[in-house]
Simulated scan of single mutants.
Amino acid sequence: MLVLSRKAGETIWIGEEVEIVISEVKGDQVKIGIRAPRNIDIIRGELRGDVSTSNIEAVIQNLDILISEK
Rank of each mutant, 00 (worst) to 15 (best):
L66E: 12
S23C: 14
N55A: 14
K7I: 00
I60V: 09
L66K: 05
K7L: 10
R35V: 07
I32P: 05
P37E: 05
I56K: 13
V18A: 10
K31E: 15
K26S: 14
N62Q: 11
V21I: 14
S54D: 15
P37V: 02
E19S: 08
R48M: 09
T53V: 15
G15E: 00
I60L: 05
S5D: 00
S54F: 08
D41H: 10
I65R: 12
L63E: 03
K7A: 10
I12L: 06
W13I: 06
E69N: 09
G49F: 11
E17N: 10
E57A: 08
S23A: 12
I14Q: 11
S52A: 12
L63H: 02
I42W: 08
I34V: 12
V3D: 13
I42R: 08
I43M: 14
S54Y: 01
L47Q: 11
I42M: 03
Q61P: 00
T53I: 15
I42H: 01
D50W: 11
I20R: 03
E19A: 06
S68G: 05
R44Y: 10
E17S: 09
E69K: 11
V3I: 02
G27A: 04
E16R: 02
W13G: 05
G49A: 13
I60C: 04
D50G: 12
D50F: 13
E46M: 08
I65N: 04
E69M: 09
Q29S: 14
Q29F: 10
S52Q: 04
K70W: 10
T11Y: 09
V21W: 05
E10N: 09
E69L: 06
